[in-house]
Simulated assay, not measured.
Amino acid sequence: MRVVVAVDSFKGSLSTREAGEAAAAGVRAAVPDADVVVVPVADGGEGTAECLADAWGTSLRTLTTTDALGRPCAATWGRSADGARAVVEIASASGLPGVQDVPLRAREASTLGTGALLAAALDAGAREVLLCLGGSATTDGGAGLLVGLGARLLDADGQDLPPGGGALARLARLDLSGLHPRAGEVRWRLACDVTNPLLGPGGAAAVYGPQKGAGTRDVEVLDACLARWAAVLQETTGVDVTGLPGVGAAGGAPAALVAVLDAGLEAGAPLVLAEAGLPQQLSRGADLVLTGEGSCDDQSVQGKVVDGVARAVREESACAAAAVVVLAGRVAISPARLAEAGVDAAFSIAPGPSELVDLQRDAARLLADVAERVTRLVSRAGGSPAVRDVQHEA
């Protein structure tokens, strides 16, 4: 029996590697001689750098930089074993978790600290840089990223603007003369799972600003500031980013890198699954594919890991008979919706009515238990079809 385990992290409980190993332990408890392979996976948001570093056989690197409000912080980034590829999460230096200890200041929040991480990746010789956009605390259109890479944002008097999206209203000129010498030589990839434009009712400020501390007036100001930023970017590079889908992600961070460095936006989960080597493992065939995350709901089958894994299985002829089963802390999706997405069943790790703190504490054991039960069922049935008749909604 061959089983591929591709489980996302259970936030607050298990990393993607820990979750995968727990599920694998359950598989081996049911079928000791099973061929089990664990593929660390993520959807391009928080946890992606750790996932890819694991897949690359390397460890995350730490850099002292600044958080979204300009305070010193330690942030991490990943590098492949050959040094050719690097992965940076905007959430590591410029994310909401790093500034939750103080009142959020939406107009001042900056991606400058993440720019320093990107510069470190270039200094280390990376030829391809992946920036993961989830979890940012910023709405500066990626202006801080460029400053961290050596650019200057100047007002009408030739003075440098302070950090933050709120200062962009006074932007007169973007000076790229000091940009990192390797910035234009590498391939820039942006992991993005939304299609929001930069401006307007569906844009960066209006949709994501409130969760970053922006009130009604702040949203209006930041939207106007991003419009000014887009105008200066177009004046400088000739690229109009205002109509591009996805540029509104992470407070408009893609705008800077798309206009200045020709960065490409890509769906996060398929990108990471490919980098982690899932297609190669599936090409060897599987009887059972276990995937999952902390909460399995409608979003799970709309571009997240569960959706990506199911799609990858369906696209691989060697896995035509494989059962795809989700293991999650919480299951809040109908069996019919799962079936539409190519998932055969979903099981919660909760043994009954449970407190979240208890599930988090015992997540590894509970995940292993459920994986063991699923594997016993599939192995006893002699294949995957039986699983489709025992869909479970917790």
Rank of each mutant, 00 (worst) to 15 (best):
Q100R: 15
A42L: 09
G95T: 03
A81F: 04
D33K: 01
P103Y: 03
A126V: 00
S80K: 02
A55E: 06
G70N: 14
D123W: 13
A119V: 03
A124D: 13
A84G: 00
G98F: 02
T64H: 11
S59C: 10
T58A: 11
G134W: 08
T64N: 01
Q100N: 09
G83H: 05
R61S: 14
L130R: 05
V39S: 12
R105T: 11
A121K: 09
V87P: 01
E89W: 10
G83L: 01
P103H: 01
A124N: 01
G45F: 10
S80H: 02
I90D: 09
A106E: 04
V37Q: 13
S94I: 13
P72Q: 03
A74C: 11
A116L: 07
L117K: 08
V39G: 13
A68S: 13
G45M: 07
S80V: 02
A42F: 10
G45A: 10
G83D: 01
T48C: 08
A42H: 09
T66R: 15
R79L: 10
V41W: 11
T64F: 08
R105I: 00
L52V: 04
D123L: 07
C51F: 02
G95H: 07
A116C: 09
L60Y: 06
V88N: 10
S59E: 15
A120G: 04
G47S: 04
L52M: 05
C73P: 02
A91D: 09
V37R: 15
V31S: 07
R107Q: 08
Q100T: 14
P72I: 00
L122E: 08
V87A: 05
W56P: 06
G113H: 09
G57M: 08
P103I: 04
P103G: 04
G47R: 02
A116H: 14
G115C: 02
R107V: 12
T58H: 10
G70D: 12
L131E: 09
D82F: 05
A53C: 14
L63W: 00
S80C: 01
L131C: 12
P103A: 00
A91N: 09
L117Y: 12
R61Y: 12
P40M: 09
T65A: 11
L131D: 08
R61F: 13
D123A: 13
L133T: 04
P32Q: 12
A86I: 02
G57Y: 04
L52E: 07
A74V: 09
A91K: 09
S94F: 14
P32W: 11
L69Y: 12
L131F: 09
C51A: 03
V41S: 12
G57T: 06
